[in-house]
Write a protein that binds this DNA or RNA. Structure first.
Length: 270
DNA sequence: CTCTTAACCTGGACGC
DNA sequence: TGCGTCCAGGTTAAGA
């Protein structure tokens, strides 16, 4: 479910409830999600104060004194802050108990998410090797152009490669490529420097706009306060296969690229 | 290295 | 109503 805008929306929703709060304990209703839940969540985090809630790529970090809880929402994960004692439902796998008499609740039906631990001063292996943040200045068209030389994979697959640039998933890759006028199936190494400049600008603009709308809710994404994201109203191509292009009226086409559904306008994108 | 494919897991939508 | 099939916002591991 969540790409960068949804994770950032989650981060912004959580921070006011978590920063400065002391963790009283943790309730684990199952031992693993994608991987075993780190033992430090129950054994080391309680008693510590959450100093900040940060984001790297699609990961969230709850930073405490001896380390940070490292979370990924996978395809179906969500986090909410609820009054202590709120009955838990199916797939509510973890509660982190706070000294505010609230709980941070991690729900993830498909369990593709994870809850790990990064020791203070260390970099978790999952965070090593990630590409730049798309909203940082270090990310631009030249970065994409240089990284793509000689690459034969589809440009959409390339754009979703987290070692190239982080945070872009299936929705925003499709939308950015439409905005830049690039066909998603084109080989990454056969896109010009000029067109990569347009693509990088499109990525930045679309992600920023999506964050401003609270992300995209297709079925089950919710912010920590329970609110959906409204960027779904601005989607140009994602989920619109067969429908008319909003720019030219041509029927949007769809095909699988890298095992992900990909939609584009055959007239606007080349 | 790069690229492709299978796998992880549940639930909703759809066809019969 | 029930059952089988396919698909879904992500990522890793294994193989070519």
């Amino acid at each position: 479910m969540p790409e960068l805008p949804e994770v950032e929306t989650t981060r912004r929703g959580l921070a006011p409830h978590l920063v400065g709060r002391c963790v009283r304990g943790a309730t684990l209703r199952r031992a693993d999600l994608r991987w075993p839940i780190a033992p430090q969540i129950a054994a080391e985090l309680p008693g510590q104060t959450i100093e900040s809630v940060s984001r790297r790529a699609k990961y969230l970090l709850l930073e405490a004194q001896t380390g940070a809880a490292l979370l990924h929402l996978g395809m179906s994960g969500s986090l909410r802050v609820l009054p202590e004692g709120t009955p838990h439902g199916k797939h509510d796998h973890v509660d982190v108990l706070l000294d505010s008499d609230h709980v941070l609740r991690f729900n993830d039906p498909r369990r593709f998410g994870c809850l790990l631990w990064q020791a203070h001063g260390a970099v978790h292996p999952l965070l090593a090797g990630l590409g730049p943040e798309p909203l940082d200045e270090a990310f631009d068209g030249d970065h994409l152009w240089r990284a793509s030389r000689g690459r034969t994979a589809p440009v959409k697959t390339f754009l979703m490669d987290q070692s190239v640039v982080v945070g872009v998933g299936n929705i925003y890759a499709a939308e950015a490529l439409f905005r830049a006028g690039i066909a998603p199936g084109r080989a990454a190494g056969r896109v010009s420097r000029e067109r990569y400049a347009a693509l990088a600008a499109a990525v930045k603009d679309i992600l920023a706009r999506a964050i401003a709308r609270g992300g995209t809710t297709l079925r089950d994404f919710i912010a920590p306060d329970g609110a959906p994201g409204y960027f779904v109203q601005e989607l140009s191509v994602y989920g619109r296969a067969g429908q008319a292009c909003k720019a030219c009226g041509t029927a949007l086409r769809a095909r699988m690229l890298g095992q992900r559904a990909s939609v584009w306008c055959p007239r606007c994108q080349h």
